[in-house]
Design a protein around this nucleic acid. Structure first.
Length: 595
DNA sequence: CGCAATATGATATCAATC
DNA sequence: GATTGATATCATATTGCG
């Protein structure tokens, strides 16, 4: 790939590594404006974070043009920074494969490579061609290769078979997706193929959903109308986005206070458990994100719910799950449903022109003292007996809505206290307090958490199904919203495997676990990427599988309040969604094998 | 160094309007 | 149907302080 676009301006970048990972047939078709990548001259020394923020750089386009998926390219660039294209390429080729490795103690200078990567003699181009051709003979695949060569098909293949796919499926996927497809893409492909088996009866094989970004051309109206005729409301094709629409009102399949509840739905065959799964993220994600999430999670339609139907604060979230939806019941006692009920002290100072009855979404940051001072001064500028001018009212209300301010005195507004946030989200008082946790961390942990009443309503159907308790795999546990919800529902927790990167959050959760005298055992794991098939299988063998897998993967690259790196599902943290899918699919496969 | 305070838009949807 | 305005949003980078 050295030579083409790179020749225009960045010859200073050494694209040839020792690894000699050549990518041929570079075609920058998907890039409208192809310009040379703007690589800093001091390539290696550039701090990753300084450049990683730019969303769709030229470098990005270049890699996409090579045939890598957008999500992987973004992830790689985010992890490495644009200053080191070699490392990005390496990362693209190694991504996901290396997760086979259970340990990651020494992270050496080549950021991506956690495991010894010896490869290199066979540059991929010659090798893969022959490999694919020879592949019809299964026996030719030898397990003797101990050295992981992430760019080789063998490892992709073995990784996929480790995930539980058949050799046939894996090899077809490699063939269809191309030699440079990552394991994530391959798994995606196989998954989609499995999911669309039923659809085959209706759709011709050539009209299956094309999940990757390598679409050569867009099949436009013909396909569109064709599949619409067949499928009615839902279109499978990507490219001409038919985004999932958010419901209005955002009540999902039903909430306790509204009568219009859907009590029946038909899950896709591939989605049916065991185990039950429950995935959560922000509803207002960038376009296409929920389509992707839904596609990965076995085509289950997301349930979008605003927590304002459960408590005094809004929280618009999407939930993808395969739980039953009839006979749900809410947590008791019902939490306060209005600001006045939740925060009675504010009523005394609440002006009549502030018509809010619900708070907006509780976030990870709070309004500053400077802001509330500015507002106070603005309000004091007029006659105190009368209402402020409409212009002032609007300014104040805008800021109140933006920062969730409440009235605590005459002309005096304030952000919520941490314990008020705890209460509003359904956590026990002081859940996040003490033990060396700073105030800032409390806001952050709480802002990233579930609204317990909302989640508990969805999980309540499990109470009858698991009267003796359940085994829970909790990914991205945070401060344990799912655990608290199940506990408050009276569903015993037998074994809980909790994966949470933040030590602060792990401490909060362990503290809660001890204070609530849990009978089961709590196993903490730090990093989802460490949770590989072997570890999962070992855990499952020790107590016989998981009944429920809960996870809300990071939203920070999806959330609107992120000014810096709203990169979508391919962002550095939010792409961990794919680990949720990976682990869920692993568990599914292990459990479907029937012990 | 940890912590707190502060400033910093962009994206998406919906409703009204042209 | 296109445009415009209103509204909402599980955040990050930087700076200053103790």
């Amino acid at each position: 790939m050295d030579g083409n676009a790179a020749g225009e301006g960045d010859d200073n970048v050494d694209w040839n590594t020792e690894d000699e990972l050549e990518v041929e047939n570079y075609a920058a078709s998907s890039c409208s404006s192809l310009t040379p990548p703007s690589v800093d001259a001091a390539s290696g020394s550039v701090e990753a974070s300084s450049l990683a923020g730019t969303s769709h750089s030229k470098l990005f386009c270049e890699f996409v043009g090579m045939g890598f998926s957008e999500k992987l390219v973004t992830k790689a660039i985010d992890e490495i920074g644009e200053g080191n294209p070699n490392a990005i390429l390496e990362s693209l080729l190694t991504y996901k494969v290396l997760e086979n490795s259970p340990q990651e103690q020494d992270i050496d200078e080549s950021t991506v490579v956690k495991e010894e990567v010896v490869d290199s003699d066979h540059s991929s181009s010659d090798y893969e061609g022959s490999f694919l051709n020879d592949f019809s003979d299964e026996d030719s695949y030898s397990e003797s290769e101990e050295v992981i060569n992430p760019s080789s098909e063998e490892n992709k293949l073995s990784f996929l078979t480790d995930m539980g796919y058949t050799v046939e499926e894996a090899s077809i996927a490699i063939e269809r997706c191309g030699p440079d497809a990552s394991v994530a893409e391959l798994a995606d492909f196989i998954c989609a193929a499995q999911m669309s088996k039923e659809a085959d009866a209706l759709l011709g094989p050539e009209e299956k959903p094309r999940l990757f970004t390598k679409h050569k051309k867009r099949k436009h109206s013909d396909c569109d109308t064709w599949s619409k005729k067949r499928r009615g409301e839902k279109k499978l094709l990507r490219g001409d986005e038919e985004p999932i629409r958010l419901p209005n009102p955002m009540v999902g399949f039903g909430v306790p206070t509204e009568s219009s509840a859907i009590v029946h739905r038909t899950l896709p065959e591939a989605a049916i458990g065991p185990p039950y799964f429950y995935y959560e993220n922000v509803a207002l994600a960038p376009k296409g994100v929920w389509d992707t999430i839904s596609r990965f999670l076995y085509d289950v339609e997301p349930e979008f719910v605003d927590s304002k139907y459960f408590c005094a604060t809004a929280r618009k979230r999407g939930y993808v799950h395969n739980l039953p939806i009839n006979n749900r019941f809410p947590l008791l006692p019902l939490p306060p449903h209005t600001i006045h009920e939740a925060l009675p002290m504010t009523r005394k100072w609440w002006p009549s022109w502030d018509t809010r009855t619900k708070l907006n979404c509780l976030q990870t940051c709070i309004g500053s003292a400077k802001l509330t001072e500015r507002i106070r001064k603005a309000l004091e500028h007029h006659d105190s007996e009368s209402e402020p001018p409409l212009r002032i009212q609007k300014y104040v209300l805008d800021e109140c809505r933006k920062w969730n301010l409440v009235w605590v005195g005459r002309n005096k507004l304030a952000p919520l206290e941490p314990d008020e946030v705890e209460m509003l989200l359904g956590f026990p008082k002081n859940h996040t307090r003490g033990g060396g946790i700073s105030r800032t961390d409390r806001y952050k942990s709480l802002g990233n958490s579930f609204q317990v009443d909302t989640v508990a309503y969805h999980l309540s159907v499990l109470k009858d199904l698991f009267p003796a308790g359940l085994n829970l795999l909790s990914l991205f546990s945070g401060i344990g919203g799912a655990e608290v919800a199940l506990h408050r529902l009276g569903i015993p927790l037998k074994n809980v495997v909790s994966v949470e990167i933040s030590e602060v959050n792990r401490n909060i959760m362990r503290s809660w676990w001890e204070q609530t005298n849990q009978k089961g055992s709590l196993i903490h794991i730090g990093d989802v990427q460490q949770l590989n098939g072997d570890r999962i299988e070992q855990l499952m063998n020790s107590f016989g599988g998981f009944d429920l897998i809960v996870g809300g993967s990071p939203c920070n690259n999806l959330a609107g309040s992120n000014r810096h790196s709203r990169d979508g599902l391919e962002g550095k943290e939010s792409s961990l969604f794919y680990d949720y899918f990976r682990i869920l699919d692993l568990v599914k496969c292990i459990m479907s094998k029937g012990q």
